[in-house]
């Protein structure tokens, strides 16, 4: 049901612009994983991510006349989702300083990766500024290069690069520290 359906996506876009409900549904199914994952990892809570995903797709259904291709749609969805999430995080930080919810499964129910790494990544994401978090997600979740990230977030490419460098350095140091602690625990 929720699997993406990559075939004929540009035809779906043309039909969706003409107002065909099935085509709009197909576009939502094709792109909801990306939008939902960005929202979940930006906001750190499933209910907030679902609300944001819904808002983004409602806006998409109103704005289809201005979307020219599937690539444009992908760009538009990422831009709207990340900008809405950044706005929400900035508004939230004015009232409370709550970090990302520790109990929320941000990396999916089934993941065969390293649990220590995932825990560390989750903590690292929680500590990042909204813009730096968006940069990291667009780079490693959406596989965009720094120029595309800069265009999506409307920030200079050098800012994107410095966010990425700082994030990777911080993660590397954090992981090295965590690895040392783990080895020390084993020796005890």
């Amino acid at each position: 049901m929720s699997e993406p359906r990559p075939i004929d996506i540009n035809m779906d876009l043309a039909a969706a612009r003409a107002g065909q409900p099935a085509a709009i549904g197909a576009l939502i199914l094709a792109h909801q994983r990306s939008v939902y994952s960005l929202a979940l990892r930006m906001l750190g809570a499933r209910d907030l991510a679902e609300d944001l995903t819904q808002e983004v797709f409602m806006q998409m259904s109103e704005s289809l006349h201005g979307i020219e291709s599937n690539e444009h749609l992908e760009f538009w969805l990422r831009k709207v989702a990340t900008n809405r999430a950044i706005d929400q995080l900035r508004r939230r930080s004015r009232f409370e300083m709550t970090p990302i919810d520790d109990h929320e499964p941000m990396f999916g129910p089934v993941d065969h990766g390293d649990p220590l790494f995932q825990r560390h990544l989750e903590m690292h994401l929680a500590q990042l500024s909204p813009a730096a978090r968006a940069v990291l997600l667009l780079r490693y979740q959406e596989d965009l290069d720094p120029t595309e990230i800069a265009r999506t977030l409307e920030i200079p490419v050098n800012t994107v690069k410095s966010h990425l460098t700082r994030s990777l350095d911080a993660m590397r140091h954090g992981l090295a520290g965590a690895g040392r602690e783990k080895r020390e625990d084993k020796h005890r």
Binding site: Q32, S34, S37, E50, G108, Q141
Partner: peptide, 25 residues
Amino acid sequence: SKLKHALRPVAPSDAFTQRLLARVA
């Protein structure tokens, strides 16, 4: 590569997808 693996997109629940499609329609 670890980051890319850990940050693969995840799907929302089917219940949410149904609600979303119904809401947009």
